[in-house]
Design a protein around this nucleic acid. Structure first.
Length: 614
DNA sequence: CTAGGGTTAG
């Protein structure tokens, strides 16, 4: 062995040794046995050995050896260790090593910034980025994509803009990677216009930059733009891949555009992406959001190698369609199949229980989550539970739960409770919550509307007016309700009392025509859902032209008898429309599917699948 | 050493 050491160059030596010894432990033992080896050769050998390390523990063992040679202050060696630790996702270990390096090279800074960013520790990542600047080092084109990713992860637009300025100063704009990261950062921070500006200025755009933009549109609710941009990308000669397809599927689901979604499904089959678990899950979810639960389930059954997300998506699908029991059954099957649920899975299960009124089951799974599965509860889990209790009328239990939460409840938690107060017309509690809620989120229109609805239900018109003024003062503008319906490969959009559609006169005539048979079946308008104290007759008019009714009229006029109507609405369906549509389904003898903000309502023969529990 | 990605409450 000793002759071997003397004859070979360090690199060759290390390579030889690595072949001969299965791990660095043996190797270091051999080095110890050869005391004559010059220190820089040992350093070389250790560097080579490091690259061969296949696990964190192997790395740690090798690391322990360097102290014996006094190499623990060798920047070159430490740098390698830090990089290797990052490559094994051991950012903390890397960080400790990093601290000991007096003047890290920018390469290492970048690796560290990337390490924190990929680990989801965006603040630490940005802290390092700032530290690097403080040390007088100029970030390079490799540093910016990671720093921007961290801003995106934090949705921190302000910091993103600052880094945008830095990269312009450093002459790094017009780099394909940097620009793509900028587009992504702006999109994830919700500033889609800024994302588009960067995108438009790019001299060269590849598939990834197009996809960043498309995904930005999809995730910010610009659904038709998503589809339009996808077409634009294809016509400019860029071939879509599985990632870009995920965004269009999301958009189809959001729009409830079933035909379009089917087209993409067949496109996926043609292009061979159908066996990709992410694509398969996205297609499943699209079908479910477009109202085709059965198709979603077929796909689910056909999918090989179902993972946690795939299972959770199917459970969520049962939930929004009001099949709580099936959601629970599927959860149990998932556990039996050996897939470990996550806090998201529990959110899906709890929400399914809530929509189906499965109070005891929900309580049980809420317990099971921590006790059996040892999963920390997140805000979304509490929100579901508050919703479940509140909807079931257990308002004081819901309050109890909130008061004993280990984390600070946010607006969404109080919002759930306020929603329950609306259902049960509990004004006292609502007023107490509202104070708190408006403090946490003063510009949320929905919460104001809920409170106002409770006042309206009690004919407290002065207070209704007060809330309305409060909203105006705070700039909490009511979100315009709209409904979508797909027809002839087009998504048609209707607003409240909309007269902009080419067929508007026919639509109103259709609703007029339905008024008499509805009255005959006992329809009485539920006018508490009108925000203002106006004349009864005007209220009735305001209600009868809600966007979902116009969308239904459109569907009735343009499709053949018996065709299922599928409507997607951006807000919650109001109680009056819910009553009206039940009757309409009976009169016209059609299945009418309405997906509102929270769930599906399947109207058939005068009843709704939600059993009026919503 | 660089980028885009499927499920989640209100």
């Amino acid at each position: 062995m000793r002759t071997l050491f003397n004859q070979l160059t360090p690199i060759n030596l290390a390579a030889t040794l690595c072949n001969r010894f299965s791990n660095s432990n043996h190797l270091c033992t051999s080095i110890s046995a050869s005391p004559n080896l010059p220190i820089n050769q040992i350093a070389h050998i250790i560097c080579c050995v490091l690259q061969e390390c296949t696990s964190f523990s192997c790395l740690k063992k090798t690391h322990a050896k360097i102290f014996a040679y006094g190499l623990q202050y060798d920047s070159r060696i430490l740098t390698k260790f830090a990089i290797m630790y990052v490559s094994f996702n051991r950012i903390d270990a890397a960080s400790i090593v990093f601290e000991d390096i007096p003047n890290p090279c920018s390469f290492l800074w970048n690796v560290m910034i990337r390490g924190f960013a990929t680990d989801g520790r965006f603040l630490s990542s940005l802290e390092l980025y700032s530290k690097m600047m403080e040390k007088g080092l100029k970030p390079d084109k490799f540093a910016f994509p990671f720093a921007l990713k961290s801003c995106a992860g934090l949705s921190d637009l302000q910091r993103g803009k600052v880094i945008h300025q830095h990269l312009v100063c450093c002459g790094c704009s017009n780099d394909l990677f940097v620009d793509a990261a900028l587009v992504d950062m702006y999109a994830k921070c919700g500033d889609i216009e800024a994302a588009r500006l960067v995108f438009d200025k790019m001299a060269v755009r590849d598939l990834v930059s197009w996809t960043s933009m498309i995904s930005g549109y999809a995730h910010n609710g610009y659904n038709s733009e998503t589809l339009g941009f996808f077409d634009l990308m294809r016509s400019s000669g860029v071939i879509p891949n599985r990632v870009s397809i995920l965004s269009v599927l999301l958009a189809c689901g959001n729009l409830g555009a079933l035909r379009k979604g089917e087209w993409f499904h067949s496109y996926v089959i043609q292009t061979g992406f159908e066996f990709d678990i992410l694509v398969a899950t996205a297609i499943m979810d699209m079908y479910s959001k477009c109202g085709s639960l059965d198709l979603a389930r077929c796909l689910f059954d056909e999918t090989a190698g179902k993972d946690l997300v795939c299972w959770s998506a199917m459970i969520a699908s049962y939930g929004i369609h009001g099949h709580g029991r099936k959601a629970i059954d599927l959860f149990d099957q998932m556990v039996k199949a050996g897939v470990r649920p996550s806090h998201v899975t529990f959110t899906c299960v709890l929400s399914a229980c809530s929509h189906s009124g499965l109070l005891e089951e929900g309580k049980m799974y809420f317990q099971l989550m921590t006790e059996e599965f040892v999963i920390a509860r997140k805000l979304s889990n509490y929100a579901c539970m508050v919703d479940l209790l509140g909807r079931a009328g257990q308002l004081s239990e819901a309050v109890d739960l909130i008061e004993n939460m280990p984390v600070e409840p946010d607006a969404s938690i109080w919002g759930s409770l306020l929603g329950a107060c609306r259902i049960h017309n509990n004004l006292d509690l609502a007023e107490k919550i509202a104070d708190h809620l408006f403090h946490l989120d003063p510009v949320h229109a929905g919460y104001h509307v809920l409170l106002s609805n409770i006042y309206a239900a009690k004919s407290r018109w002065n207070e209704v007016e007060k809330v309305r003024k409060m909203m105006a003062r705070r700039g909490a503008n009511k979100i315009q309700g709209f409904s979508l319906v797909e027809y002839d490969n087009q998504v048609h959009k209707f607003g409240v009392g909309d007269r902009s559609h080419p067929q508007w006169e026919k639509l109103y005539a259709k609703l007029e025509e339905l008024a008499a048979p509805m009255k005959h079946l006992g329809y009485v308008p539920l006018t508490d859902f009108v925000l203002h104290d106006i004349e009864e007759e005007a209220k009735e008019a305001a209600l009868s032209y809600h966007s979902e009714r116009l969308a239904i009229a459109f569907g009735l006029i343009n499709t053949s008898p018996g065709t299922t109507l599928r409507i997607t609405k951006n807000l919650r369906i109001c109680g009056d429309c819910h009553n009206a549509i039940k009757l309409i389904s009976k009169i016209v003898n059609r299945v009418i599917l309405v997906r509102d903000m929270h769930r599906f309502h399947r109207f058939e023969d005068g009843v709704c699948s939600c059993g009026d529990y919503w």
